[in-house]
């Protein structure tokens, strides 16, 4: 078990060492990176927006229920929705969802290329395949996922507004007052740092699973599942470590 962990960790580091080197032909990498940005960014916008709106709405409703009958002012709901979204829900939930959508897609795409000998064909041409196939995905994710998280956080706050103001739980002024209270800039930094770390984890771990796939369609399916499972575990672990780091 421990040997297995070190074997995969060593192989992952070796792959990343090869992947994160200077590109051979910048315009080819630029083209591939922009393609990935569109795939990851535009392709995930709807699902991220949908999840974000419900996260905000559910958080607002739950806290409204929990604070009912207490001495805590009702406008605190806006504040709670904003901060819980920025600090935790937007980066973590968004990236867990993206691990499922983007991560499995990366593992399947690279794994399929491995099985169809596309990677061998590129290697024989002299292409650094880890570099060409993985680095554009990581760079694209590092640019696009923090933006998706920011959009998700914004939509989530709107979701909280819709769930409370439109249903009469809070007035417009109360919710806005809550959202504008006790703002700490560091929380936004924390959100972006989390988004960057999670983006790196989910793309590199998924790429690793796809790049080293062997066998047939069953193994490709397993690689895709492993990509999601390991990305999710590492995202949650990193989330904990970052929370400790930022709150010490």
């Amino acid at each position: 078990m421990l040997f297995n962990f070190f074997y995969h960790f060593g192989r992952y580091l070796k792959m990343m060492g090869t992947a994160l080197t200077r590109p051979e032909k910048l315009n080819m990498y630029y083209r591939e990176t922009t393609r990935q940005m569109i795939d990851i960014g535009i392709g995930s916008l709807v699902i991220v927006g949908l999840i974000a709106i419900f996260i905000g709405a559910v958080t607002a409703i739950q806290f409204s229920y929990q604070l009912d009958g207490t001495l805590v002012p009702r406008w605190y709901i806006g504040y709670i929705v904003r901060d819980s979204t920025i600090i935790e829900l937007a980066p973590t939930i968004t990236c867990l969802v993206l691990a499922g959508k983007v991560g499995s897609n990366i593992a399947a795409e690279i794994g399929g290329m491995r099985q169809k000998e596309h990677i061998d064909a590129m290697e024989i041409m002299g292409v650094n395949t880890a570099n060409y196939l993985i680095m554009p995905k990581i760079i694209a994710a590092l640019f696009v996922i923090p933006l998706l998280v920011a959009v998700g956080a914004f939509i989530s706050v709107i979701g909280g507004y819709a769930a409370t103001v439109f249903t009469g739980l809070l007035s417009n002024a109360e919710y806005i007052q809550g959202v504008r209270s006790f703002f700490v800039e560091k929380n936004v930094t924390m959100m972006f740092v989390k988004a960057l770390v999670f983006a790196f984890l989910l793309t590199s771990v998924s790429a690793y699973q796809g790049y080293h796939v062997k066998g047939g369609s069953i193994e490709l399916g397993q690689a895709s599942t492993n990509a999601v499972v390991y990305s999710d575990i590492l995202i949650l672990l990193a989330d904990y470590l970052l929370a400790v780091f930022f709150t010490q």
Binding site: K116, E117, H118, D120, A121, E123, I124, M125, G126
Partner: peptide
């Protein structure tokens, strides 16, 4: 050396 190599794969790849 590899840049001087061409290969046709069984599956065409």
């Amino acid at each position: 050396i590899r840049m001087k190599v061409g290969m046709l794969f069984q599956s065409s790849a």
